[in-house]
Amino acid sequence: EVTIKANLIFANGSTQTAEFKGTFEKATSEAYAYADTSKKDNGEYTVDVADKGYTLNIKFAG
């Protein structure tokens, strides 16, 4: 089991951190699914992958 950390960075400057656990593939998939659901309210996003994929910096356009 691994933990994927997602740092969500919103257009207004606020941030949120979420953690997803499971296999690398499952946790990563859940992090992207979470970003997709947040996209409806926060606009399109880009992802900067860090820490060999264990940290995702997800920046929303607003």
Rank of each mutant, 00 (worst) to 15 (best):
G62L: 08
A27D: 01
L56M: 06
T55M: 06
A6L: 15
D51N: 08
Q16H: 13
Y54G: 04
D48Q: 13
F20H: 01
F60I: 01
N7G: 01
K39W: 06
K21F: 12
G62Y: 09
S38H: 15
I58C: 04
E30D: 14
F60H: 02
A31D: 00
E25H: 09
Q16N: 08
V49I: 13
D41E: 14
V47E: 01
Q16K: 12
G43S: 04
I58H: 01
Y54F: 14
G62N: 09
D51S: 04
N12M: 05
K40L: 12
F60T: 00
S29W: 12
A11P: 13
G62E: 08
A33N: 09
K26R: 12
I9F: 15
L8F: 14
N12P: 03
A31V: 07
N42V: 05
G62K: 08
Y32P: 01
A6Y: 02
A18K: 15
E1K: 09
V49G: 04
D48Y: 13
T37W: 14
K52D: 15
K40G: 11
F60P: 00
T55Y: 04
Y45K: 01
I9C: 10
K52F: 15
K40S: 10
A31E: 01
T46K: 08
G53D: 03
Q16C: 14
A11H: 09
T46G: 04
F24C: 08
I9M: 11
K26E: 13
V47Y: 04
G13I: 03
E1L: 14
G22D: 04
K21Q: 09
A27L: 01
T28Y: 13
K39E: 05
G22R: 00
F60C: 03
T37V: 13
A31K: 01
E44L: 09
T28P: 01
K52T: 08
A6G: 03
A27S: 04
K59W: 14
G43P: 02
I58V: 06
Y54T: 06
A50F: 11
G22K: 01
I9W: 11
L56P: 00
D36N: 12
L8R: 01
L56A: 00
T3G: 03
T3W: 07
A35L: 09
K39P: 03
E30W: 07
T55K: 04
I58T: 00
V2Y: 06
N57S: 05
A6N: 00
L56F: 05
T55C: 06
F60W: 05
V47I: 10
G22T: 01
A35W: 02
T17S: 12
K39L: 07
Y54K: 07
A35N: 02
T55Q: 06
T55G: 02
N7K: 09
A18L: 15
G22L: 03
K21V: 12
F20Y: 05
A33P: 00
E19F: 15
L8T: 02
N57P: 00
F20A: 00
A61R: 12
I58D: 00
G13R: 06
I9P: 01
A61Y: 13
T46R: 08
V47Q: 01
A11N: 07
Q16R: 12
A61S: 14
K40P: 11
N57I: 14
Q16P: 01
I9V: 10
T37Q: 15
D41K: 12
K59L: 12
L56K: 00
K5T: 15
K26W: 12
A11F: 09
F20P: 00
E1I: 15
K40N: 10
D41R: 10
L8G: 00
T17P: 04
T55N: 03
I9L: 11
N42Q: 11
F60D: 01
L8I: 11
G13K: 06
S29L: 14
G53V: 02
V49M: 08
A18F: 15
A18V: 15
K40C: 12
I58L: 06
V47K: 02
V2E: 05
A35Q: 01
G13F: 05
F20E: 00
T3V: 13
A6S: 04
E30G: 05
Q16Y: 14
G62H: 08
A50Q: 14
I4G: 00
T15V: 14
N12C: 11
A11T: 08
A31N: 00
V47S: 04
E44P: 14
E19P: 02
E25L: 10
D48I: 13
A35M: 07
S14G: 10
N42F: 14
D36C: 10
A61I: 13
N7A: 05
A31Y: 01
N57F: 11
E30V: 05
N42H: 15
S14A: 13
T3R: 07
E19N: 09
V2M: 05
A6Q: 02
G53P: 03
V49F: 10
Y54W: 07
A11I: 09
A18M: 15
Y34M: 09
G53I: 02
V49H: 07
T3F: 06
E44V: 09
F10P: 00
A31T: 03
T28N: 06
I4L: 06
Y34V: 05
A61G: 13
G43Y: 04
N12D: 14
E19M: 13
G62I: 08
G43R: 03
F10R: 03
G43C: 06
Y32T: 04
I9H: 10
T15C: 13
A11M: 09
E19K: 08
N57A: 04
N57T: 11
T37L: 15
Y45G: 01
Q16D: 09
F60A: 00
S14E: 13
T3E: 04
I9Q: 08
E25S: 10
G22C: 03
E19D: 07
K5N: 06
Y45Q: 01
K26G: 11
G43D: 04
Y32N: 02
K21N: 08
A11Y: 08
A11Q: 10
A6M: 14
L8K: 03
G43I: 04
T46P: 01
S38F: 15
E25I: 10
Y54A: 05
G53E: 03
T17A: 08
L56I: 09
G62T: 09
K40H: 11
A50M: 13
G43N: 04
D51Q: 04
V47L: 06
T46N: 07
E44S: 12
A50I: 12
K52I: 06
T23N: 08
V2D: 03
E25R: 07
N42C: 12
L56D: 00
A6I: 15
F20D: 00
D48W: 11
T23Q: 07
E19S: 12
K26I: 11
D36Y: 06
A33E: 10
A50V: 12
T46M: 08
G62V: 09
E30I: 06
G53Q: 03
A31R: 01
E30M: 14
F10A: 02
K59E: 06
T3Q: 05
E19Q: 10
Y54H: 09
G22E: 02
T17I: 11
N12G: 07
K26T: 12
T3L: 09
K59G: 04
K21I: 11
K39Y: 07
S14N: 12
T46A: 07
E1T: 12
N7S: 06
G62M: 09
T15A: 08
A61F: 14
T37P: 03
G53C: 04
A33Q: 10
A33C: 08
T46D: 06
I9A: 06
A27W: 03
I4C: 02
D48R: 09
K39C: 10
F60E: 01
A50R: 12
E44H: 10
V47F: 04
A33G: 07
E30Y: 08
V2W: 05
A33S: 09
V47C: 07
Y54I: 05
G53L: 03
D48G: 08
K52S: 14
G13D: 04
L56V: 05
A31C: 07
I4P: 00
A35F: 12
D51P: 02
N12Y: 06
E44I: 09
T15E: 07
D51Y: 04
K5W: 09
I4S: 00
K39A: 14
A61V: 13
T28H: 06
Y45I: 02
T28F: 08
T55A: 04
E44G: 08
K52L: 13
T37H: 14
A6D: 00
N12I: 04
I4K: 00
K21T: 14
E25K: 09
D41G: 10
Y34I: 04
A31F: 02
G53H: 02
I58A: 02
T23E: 08
E1Q: 13
Y32F: 12
F24H: 06
A27K: 00
K26A: 12
Y34G: 01
Q16W: 12
F10E: 01
E25Y: 08
K52W: 13
Y45E: 01
N12W: 07
K59F: 15
I4A: 00
E44W: 10
N42E: 10
T15F: 11
K59S: 11
T28W: 10
T37D: 13
G13H: 05
K52G: 15
